[in-house]
Design a protein around this nucleic acid. Structure first.
Length: 485
RNA sequence: GGGGUUGUGGUCUAAUGGUCAGGAUGUCAGACUUUCAAUCUGGCGAUCGGGGUUCAAUUCCCCGCAACCCUACCA
């Protein structure tokens, strides 16, 4: 029975890299019929944020990724908040201490800081094991001074840790290359990541750890810890990084990084899921559209890629456009309206006349949207005044003069007035007749009208737009345009 | 400095000890069209470098190089 977990620390908004890790764990659980656990690693009291915790729930809820066990839904191996499990880490630290695998260290932060700056000068880094061989008397005297020790793991200077990574194969690491005697239990009684992680993965019966490759360096340390504690380590699979264009860690410099930002910018959850699933994973040489359900079926560790992947916002946009086009009109209305409301173009609620216009406009704008947030600018001409959106020059087609443009608009005006008397095709034919009459192309007839009516040279199909706007308002706009010329 | 991981078009990737290294995106051009978009067609564009093994290497081996990660009482 596969048991995997996602173990974020609530210190910031859910990053897209973390989300991918979560997704792969989730997919691995689903594809194998296993369980997916959410564990909150809130052992850093300095950086803890309640908002960050809520963001975890909100983000995955929006994405449609759920867990079988977690702080919110419980489960047989709880609590799932590390801050509620302190006595277990203390117990593990005591075990380490009593087995001679660990020792208490009373070094001050100042001393450690000094050590670090000296070390970085000489190219030597890490703790100098100052407290490794303290006598009972020394420890007693430190305590008498009121110093609370940390617990450090004794890294053996001989030997090698090794494990089989599902993706990378055999990984070996000499103990002497591990950071010297890392802290397991902090002086505030909270564990460090290493201890908490190993204790919890064991107690929660985690069978597979799929995590970012940034953890690869510390996995040999974790292997050592499992050994010291007498536990069987889980299987590991270290996932490649997600970077920005420059190969650096994906950051705000590159664009959105958190789920909430992508959501705000107008991405659909299924587009985001589909895209990030393909960051370091592929199905075959051609298929690239996958619903979450399909991924749950098809995901396999074997198809993971080892190389880091650059996050390509352009391709995500392309996916998003595709998923927008695949939306039903009704759903698109639902997801679009908040953006239009926020732009002040639509009153809240679904019953306004404007809402009806938007509903009817959806088929016209659907294939023009890349982001949901594109909607306000595309629909603005239907919902607000456009008088200042264009100039007289915008009305005049290339290779045409003001006089001719004016004449065309005037010629076309009566047709617009009779809008409701024609179907689309016959109205277009009428426009063509005008074009012939004036010895020009249809485009030259449409363009001035388009600019007059929509305020822009790029718009949804004109005849449909005219109908949505209604003959009265369209005529008003034509007259306003004529006045400009 | 030490340790580690990775290296296929700009980007995501497929494949293989041996035909034109395939797809997608992006980009450029064309078609369609009522503008934009969508769609279709076509173009450009890649196996990090150097050695070695081999009849043959992008693929296997070695050495470089580059990028990134770790080297906290952060995770």
């Amino acid at each position: 029975m596969v048991r995997v977990r996602y173990a974020p620390s609530p210190t910031g908004l859910q990053h897209i890299g973390g989300v991918r890790t979560a997704l792969f764990n989730y997919l691995y659980a689903r594809s194998t019929g296993g369980s997916f656990v959410l564990r909150i690693e809130d052992t850093d009291r300095e950086r803890y944020s309640e908002d960050a915790l809520q963001d975890i729930y909100a983000s995955f809820n929006w994405l449609g990724v759920s867990w079988d066990e977690g702080p919110d839904c419980g489960g047989p191996y709880g609590p799932y908040l590390q801050s509620h499990r302190l006595e277990r880490y203390r117990a593990a630290a005591d075990t380490l201490l009593s087995r001679g695998w660990a020792y208490e260290c009373f070094c001050s932060p100042e001393r450690l800081e000094a050590l670090r700056s000296e070390g970085s000068r000489d190219g030597v880094v890490g703790y100098d094991r100052h407290c490794r061989e303290l006598t009972d008397e020394q420890r007693f005297s430190y305590r008498a001074k009121g110093i609370t020790p940390v617990v450090r793991l004794k890294i053996p200077d001989q030997g090698t840790a090794s494990f089989e990574d599902l993706l990378l194969g055999t990984v070996k690491r000499k103990h002497k290359d591990l950071p010297p005697d890392p802290v397991m239990l902090k002086s505030d009684g909270f564990p460090t990541y290493h201890l908490a992680n190993v204790v919890d993965d064991h107690e929660m019966q985690i069978t597979h750890v799929l995590r970012a490759q940034e953890w690869l360096s510390s996995t040999p340390l974790h292997i050592l810890l499992y050994e010291a504690l007498g536990h069987e380590p889980p299987k590991f699979c270290h996932l490649p990084f997600v970077t920005g264009k420059d190969g650096q860690k994906l950051s705000k410099r590159h664009g959105a990084t958190s789920v909430i930002e992508f959501r705000k910018q107008g991405y659909l959850p299924e587009a985001l899921i589909n895209y990030i699933a393909l960051l370091g994973w592929s199905y075959d040489d051609s298929r690239e559209f996958f619903t979450l359900d399909e991924l749950e079926e098809l995901f396999t560790v074997e198809k993971l890629n080892k190389a880091p992947a650059v996050f390509d916002y352009k391709k995500l946009e392309w996916f998003n456009g595709n998923y927008i086009r695949a939306c039903s009109d009704a759903r698109l209305f639902e997801v679009l309206s908040p953006y239009i409301e926020q732009a002040g173009l639509l009153p809240a609620g679904e019953q306004s006349p404007q809402a009806e216009v938007v509903r009817n406009a959806i088929p016209l704008v659907k294939e023009r949207l890349k982001l949901l947030s594109d909607a306000p600018s595309l629909l603005r001409f239907l919902l607000a005044d456009i008088g200042d959106d264009y100039t007289a020059e915008d009305l005049v087609p290339k290779k045409m003069d003001t006089g001719a443009t004016k004449a065309l608009l005037e010629a076309v005006r009566p047709l617009v007035a009779q809008l409701d008397g024609y179907d689309d095709e016959s109205l277009e034919n009428e426009f063509r007749k005008v074009a012939e009459e004036y010895d020009t192309k249809l485009g030259n007839v449409m363009m001035p009208l388009r600019v007059a009516v929509t305020g822009s040279r790029a718009s949804p199909p004109l005849i449909g737009s005219l109908r949505l706007l209604g003959a009265d308002r369209a005529l008003g706009r034509i007259d306003a345009a004529l006045a400009k010329l």
